[in-house]
Amino acid sequence: MKSIPFNLACLLSLALAAPAFADISTTMKEAMKGETSLYKKVATGKGSDEDAQKLLKYVKSLPAESPEKGDAASWKEKTDKLVKATEDVAAKKPGALQELQTAGNCKACHSVHKG
C-alpha cells in the first residue's frame, strides 16, 4: 500500500516536469513568434545547442496536430520539413540554417493553414 502514494507522486512530478508542447498555439507563442523568439535565435545561428534542442521539441509536436484550415497532406509536408530542418540544425549539418529559414517561413504556412 505504501507504493501507491509513491507511484502517484512520481506520476504527478513527471506530469508537472513535462514541457507543455501540446498544441499549435503553444508552439507558435513560445517558440516561433517575435523577433527574439527561439526560432529566430536558432535560424539565424545565434541560438545555443540547448536552444536548438528546445526548438526541436516544440516543432516535433506539430505534425500530430490539426491546423485551423487547409489540407492535412500540406500540413504534414510543411511540418515534416520544419522538423527535418530543425533536426539538421541541431546536428550542425551544413546548409541547415538556410533549410530552417525556408521551412520556418511563417507566411507560407499561415496563408494555407491559419484560420
Rank of each mutant, 00 (worst) to 15 (best):
K2A: 15
S3G: 06
S3N: 11
S3L: 09
I4H: 01
I4S: 02
P5F: 15
F6I: 05
N7M: 13
N7W: 07
L8N: 13
L8A: 08
L8Q: 10
A9V: 14
A9M: 14
C10H: 01
C10S: 10
C10T: 02
L11K: 03
L12A: 15
L12P: 12
S13A: 15
L14C: 12
L16E: 15
L16S: 13
A17S: 14
A17D: 10
A18P: 07
P19V: 03
P19D: 11
P19E: 03
A20S: 15
A20T: 00
A20K: 10
F21V: 00
F21K: 03
A22F: 08
A22Y: 07
D23Q: 11
D23I: 15
D23S: 03
I24F: 08
I24W: 04
T26A: 08
M28Q: 11
A31T: 12
M32Q: 07
K33W: 01
K33Q: 04
G34F: 06
G34H: 09
G34I: 13
E35I: 03
T36W: 09
T36Y: 14
L38V: 02
Y39C: 00
K40F: 06
K40S: 14
K41C: 00
K41D: 02
K46Q: 12
K46G: 11
K46L: 12
K46W: 11
G47D: 13
S48M: 07
D49V: 09
E50Y: 03
D51F: 13
D51S: 06
D51Y: 12
A52Q: 10
A52L: 12
Q53K: 02
Q53Y: 02
Q53R: 08
L55W: 13
L55Q: 14
L55C: 11
L56Q: 01
Y58T: 00
V59P: 04
V59T: 00
K60N: 10
S61C: 04
S61H: 02
L62R: 06
P63A: 09
A64W: 04
A64V: 07
E65I: 09
S66A: 04
S66L: 02
D71R: 01
D71I: 02
D71K: 01
A72E: 11
A73H: 02
S74T: 13
S74G: 07
W75G: 05
W75R: 08
W75S: 09
K76C: 03
K76A: 05
K76F: 02
T79I: 07
D80T: 14
L82H: 01
L82Y: 02
V83P: 06
V83Q: 04
K84C: 00
K84F: 07
A85S: 08
T86Q: 03
T86Y: 01
E87P: 12
D88M: 04
D88P: 00
D88H: 04
V89L: 12
A90Y: 05
A91H: 13
P94A: 06
G95F: 15
G95P: 10
A96Y: 04
L97E: 04
E99G: 04
L100G: 15
L100N: 09
T102M: 13
G104C: 03
G104P: 01
G104I: 14
N105F: 06
C106P: 02
C106D: 04
K107T: 10
K107F: 05
K107Y: 07
C109V: 09
H110T: 14
V112A: 09
V112T: 05
H113I: 15
H113S: 03
K114T: 15
K114F: 14
K114D: 08
G115I: 11
